[in-house]
Nucleic acid binder design. Structure first.
Length: 605
RNA sequence: CGGGGUGUAGCUUAGCCUGGUAGAGCGCCUGGUUUGGGACCAGGAGGUCGCAGGUUCGAAUCCUGUCGCCCCGACCA
């Protein structure tokens, strides 16, 4: 005979654990690797539906709602306006946009299933990975005058991206919650002001939620646009390397980071001798040329890479000892680029990879090239060695200015820790970080494409200057756990804790204990806390373990022992000590503790 | 997509190498004893061993295929 339980008549915003739903786990799920992912599941915040797809259980949802609410408050304060856009987009919107070729592979197509007649054709609908392609046409239709600018719209909504590899729980999901905002301004100066305002809003958002996120210079990637910052939470499990300097405050994503390796006043070396063949049969790597009998240091070798940019080959020249930072090629203006295949390389260069070079006159078909782009660090090579574009032959005594046909110098190499900071000259450091937010100054890439123009007071028409801004709400939730947990569980910052006070009633069968719990809960709620009462018929050990696991910042214990003594116990999740409070003062002290905690939500420095 | 790993009860897993039709811990249910840091005793329910073929008298175990998941790389909030 199945036995349910009768509904409890207890009402109010405080929750009774026995009536709520917090499925905690003693053991970590087998598919979780990192601490925050394990705790997300163990503390009953989420459950996995499939790869990169998660259900937010009540506790997880509460944190998401708090993050969203604080985000809203900060954006509203910055003058942004909330709206809501569809997640299902006509594919046409994207096909008209500037990044369809690059973005289509991460988008889920959502065709009308029906009769399958559309199989193999272009999709009818796509699930939105972001919303530039939706909001820009909207603004084109609705805003035409400088009088209506600036405007900044945001939403906090679900995004869909067919991530090649979903990972680490909410860290990289296929469906995730993101705040995305889009600013529209009359010109560059105003757009920069909007950008700065958003940057300030981000800083205060991350401070309020207790996350120590730092703003770092970032690459603009497929978004396009002129400059951008990422907000990173330092963590070993992060996907990104942040290059930084403590002396100057310089901080940049590895993709963007640069160093003062090449002095500004560098004088290019004069040639040391005539070009000369060096027979190198079978030598196709930097390392092989570095070894005896050739003994050419990697620092004196030229590395010649061939890429295909929008269908045309181009060359990238680096020092042999340097690595290409592929993202930096984005500045060259190609819509799509990729490494060339050996079959594409030989007809142009005249040799296979391993014997390539950019010395004038040695390239088989130089007119096929879209350009020769050299990393400026090659200027440090006075007298170098490079491939002769004949298999098994290199050239030595190569001089950059005399011998190489360079279209343009640039910064294409990957910075290494220890190189001088571009601002202070001090050695650069590196650490891993989780990207929780990103802001871009977009420029007019989208407004021009979609015709989002306005008329100024001189009756002149101009494209609006845009910015776009994102915060991964779910990823931020997990980043907070990653940086704020201990061996026993999560340690929530006050502002985002699913509940801020947990009242552990060790003897819930005693009416006086439960009465006291509800009385204290009311006092704490009056002071502004969200309260959970653990009224389960569990042993104390179970309750304490669960309390630590779910990480509620403040805990009150009501036990038979204490009641005899006339006290309750007050304990912070982040501290070891337990404070005994006489019953007569319990309500007042609890309220005071709540007010104190709520007032100090700043992230530690 | 390339490389590596893995799939056995709600969860964590043993068994697989060396075929003989599945075992434990947690959790759950019943009863009892307990009761301040994941209790104990007794009893019980729960598994098409991811799926599909194949080999074999016989397959969780061997072979082939396939799917899911996890990790490393490219991508991103």
């Amino acid at each position: 005979m199945p036995r349910g339980r009768l509904a409890d008549s207890f009402a109010g915003s405080m929750k009774l654990w026995s009536l709520y739903f917090i499925p905690t786990l003693k053991e970590s799920p087998a598919d979780a690797e990192i601490a925050s992912h394990k705790l997300l599941v163990r503390a009953g915040l989420v459950r996995k539906l499939g790869g990169g797809l998660y259900t937010y259980l009540p506790l997880g949802l509460r944190v998401m709602q708090k993050l969203s609410q604080i985000c809203r408050e900060e954006l509203d304060a910055a003058g942004a306006i909330e709206l809501w856009m569809p997640h299902l987009h006509p594919a046409e919107n994207w096909q008209q946009g500037p990044r369809w070729p690059a973005a289509r592979e991460i988008m889920f197509r959502a065709d009308h299933a029906g009769d399958g007649k559309r199989a193999g054709r272009e999709p009818e609908f796509v699930l939105g990975p972001t919303h530039e392609e939706v909001i820009t046409p909207l603004i084109k239709a609705e805003i035409t005058s400088y009088r209506d600018l600036p405007k900044n719209f945001y939403q906090i909504a679900t995004k869909f991206r067919n991530e090649i590899r979903p990972r680490y729980g909410l860290m990289r999901a296929r469906e995730f919650v993101m705040m995305d905002a889009y600013s529209f301004d009359v010109d560059d100066a105003h757009a920069i002001a909007s950008y700065q305002k958003m940057k300030a809003a981000y800083v205060s958002f991350f401070r309020r939620i207790g996350a120590h996120a730092i703003a770092v210079e970032a690459d603009t990637g497929v978004m396009g646009g002129s400059f951008s910052h990422e907000f990173m939470v330092p963590a070993e499990v992060g996907d990104d390397d942040v290059i930084y300097c403590e002396a100057s405050g310089y901080a940049a994503n590895r993709e963007k980071a640069t160093s003062a390796l090449v002095p500004a006043d560098l004088v290019d070396a004069a040639p040391e001798g005539a070009l000369e063949d060096l027979a190198t049969p079978g030598v196709v790597t930097i390392a092989a040329l570095e070894a005896a009998p050739y003994s050419v240091p990697a620092t004196a070798q030229f590395k010649t890479l061939v890429f295909m940019g929008d269908g045309k080959p181009f060359l990238v020249i680096l020092r042999g000892c340097d690595e290409l930072e592929e993202a930096k090629l984005g500045s060259l203006g190609f819509t799509l680029f990729r490494p060339a295949t050996p079959d594409e390389i030989e007809p142009v260069m005249g040799a296979k990879p391993g014997s390539l070079g950019a010395v004038r006159g040695t390239i088989k078909n130089p007119s096929a090239l879209a350009g020769v782009f050299a990393d400026q660090a090659i200027r440090l090579i006075g007298n170098g060695t490079t491939g002769a574009n004949r298999d098994g032959v290199h050239l030595r005594h190569v001089n950059v200015t005399r011998d190489l046909a360079i279209t343009q110098f640039g910064d294409f190499r990957r910075v290494r820790p220890g190189e001088p900071c571009p601002l202070s000259g001090q050695p650069l450091l590196v650490r891993r970080g989780i990207e929780v937010g990103h802001i871009f100054k977009l420029g007019t890439k989208y407004s021009e494409r979609y015709g989002a123009v306005y008329t100024d007071d001189q009756k002149q028409s101009h494209p609006m200057v845009m910015g776009c801004y994102g915060i991964g709400i779910g990823r931020t939730l997990q980043a907070i756990i990653e940086q704020s947990h201990d061996a026993d569980g999560i340690v929530w910052p006050w502002a985002v804790a699913p509940f801020q006070l947990l009242i552990c009633v060790l003897d819930p069968q005693l009416p006086e204990a439960m009465d006291l719990a509800k009385q204290l809960a009311a006092a704490a709620e009056g002071a502004g806390a969200d309260v959970l009462i653990d009224d389960r018929a569990e042993r104390p050990g179970v309750k304490f373990k669960d309390a630590d696991l779910i990480g509620v910042p403040l805990r009150v214990t009501i036990g038979g022992k204490g009641l005899k003594e006339g006290i309750i116990e007050l304990k912070r999740r982040s501290a070891k000590d337990v404070v005994k409070v006489p019953l007569a003062e319990a309500g007042a002290q609890l309220a005071a503790a709540v007010r104190a905690a709520a007032g100090s939500t700043q992230a530690p420095a």
